[in-house]
Design a protein around this nucleic acid. Structure first.
Lengths: 251, 251
DNA sequence: CAGTGGTCTAGACCACTGA
DNA sequence: CAGTGGTCTAGACCACTGA
């Protein structure tokens, strides 16, 4: 496949920056020079540099020129694992075990009162994620029935509800909260560990425009699960993350 | 300040998508129609839609047209807090307490053997983060002395080493690992909690091109700290995150 | 005040792909 | 095979700002 010229210019400079050949603060050639170097019009050069600027790799200042950005980090890119895919990628068997599944007209249980607005019918799911038959995570989920009518007919033996939703439901925004918690008594029983075991807890609310679609809380055994985030300057994903699942066997 | 036309077109459609007025799968007008609507040239329309496409909000297919994207999440944007800033933003006093600070020619301690390549001189720091005088996190850090010669003269009373490095050292890539751990005995003593308390552990390696700059491990009290991530389709930050620090008082 | 980037035009030819 | 987006040109005028 033939590469567009603006894309070649862009990736030329991206690799020079990522390799360290161009370091933060270094000056790039002015557009006029790049036109000559690449034998193209100014718009083509401008498109390439505009993309780098939008990605935060360079900073452009009138009259002064174009420079490699000094990174300021306020965010990074966190890879979201597909649980089933991850486990299978490690050559283990993945299994989702449905523990409970009910539809409710009333508001959510007190514990989850802020999860979804209580005015809508919702489906509540509890389940357990297993790798090679050993549980490594618990899932509590609420789904807005109005937003996802087909959810009740879904089958979760091969793919967990999260994967199913991701592939069947459009959404526009999500908020995730990551924290460490000590497992309580029921959780410990389901996970087969001592009460108070350190767990990584991930809570997420997903919306389609202003409609709440689903809320989920995942509780992972602390010594069985990691999240990995990579970033270059200003949130640009720099490299590929490897498998977030560390040592499921250690469970 | 006068807004560029391509930017106005871009934000017009972004808000229509985020508000739900345009939903995933909906078709956008073709470029020719948009030229007429906005009274501009095709390049201007193309630049606006190109930006939305690069952000993953729309999908463009030849002959078929332009459509609102069905989000596929493989990543999300995680806000990186500046600890001192966060704490002070809550009206509490922030303090970093240096517990140890030494320079070493030999390799890192066995525990951290993979942290930085042992061939270089490095500075090792141990410290404690406090909010209103109460410890809420521990920090272990290695710094490549060759990459950051000024580090030894830095003062960490007002700003922790992480903030100092962020503002003084250029870097190009970082990798972060997030997990839950149970505090060990020395950690528990320093944090003033029982051994085995659930903690959120963040490990990060930062590089400038291929040179390792610093490695850090932060251990937060689980009930004192959250991370929050927001995302729109395909990793686009959708909304602002609020303060990641939940209830420092609860320590 | 001159150098640099920001934006825009009015075209053009091409590549893809779905009706 | 025709509609749509992808890319590119050779200009233009302007806005900013640092030498």
């Amino acid at each position: 496949m033939k590469q567009a010229l603006h894309e070649r210019i862009r990736s030329d400079f991206e690799s020079r920056i990522r390799s360290g050949q161009l370091q933060p603060g270094d000056k790039l050639p002015i557009e006029l020079d790049l036109m000559a170097q690449y034998g193209c019009s100014r718009m083509t050069v401008n498109k390439a540099l505009g993309a780098l600027s939008a990605a935060g790799l360079i900073v452009r200042r009138k009259r002064a020129g174009t420079f490699v950005a000094r990174p300021r980090v306020h965010s990074m890119v966190l890879d979201i694992p597909d649980l089933a895919e991850q486990i299978r990628g490690r050559g283990q068997t993945y299994q989702f075990e449905l523990l409970s599944h009910c539809t409710s007209d009333s508001g959510p249980s007190p514990k989850e009162d802020k999860a979804l607005s209580s005015s809508c019918r919702h489906i509540a799911i509890e389940g357990r994620h297993k790798a090679d038959g050993v549980p490594f995570a618990l899932e509590s989920r609420l789904v807005n029935e109005a937003a996802v009518p087909e959810f009740n007919n879904a089958d979760f033996t091969d793919n967990p509800p999260g994967s199913w939703l991701l592939h069947h439901v459009p959404w526009t925004a999500a908020e995730t909260r990551i924290s460490a918690v000590a497992s309580d008594e029921p959780q410990s029983r389901l996970l087969g560990v001592a009460t108070g075991t350190a767990c990584l807890q991930i809570e997420r609310r997903t919306r389609l425009a202003s409609t709440e679609v689903t809320w989920v809380r995942l509780v992972f055994l602390g010594d069985a699960y990691d999240l990995i985030a990579n970033f270059g300057p200003d949130g640009t994903p720099a490299g590929g993350a490897e498998n977030p699942v560390r040592n499921i066997q250690a469970v």
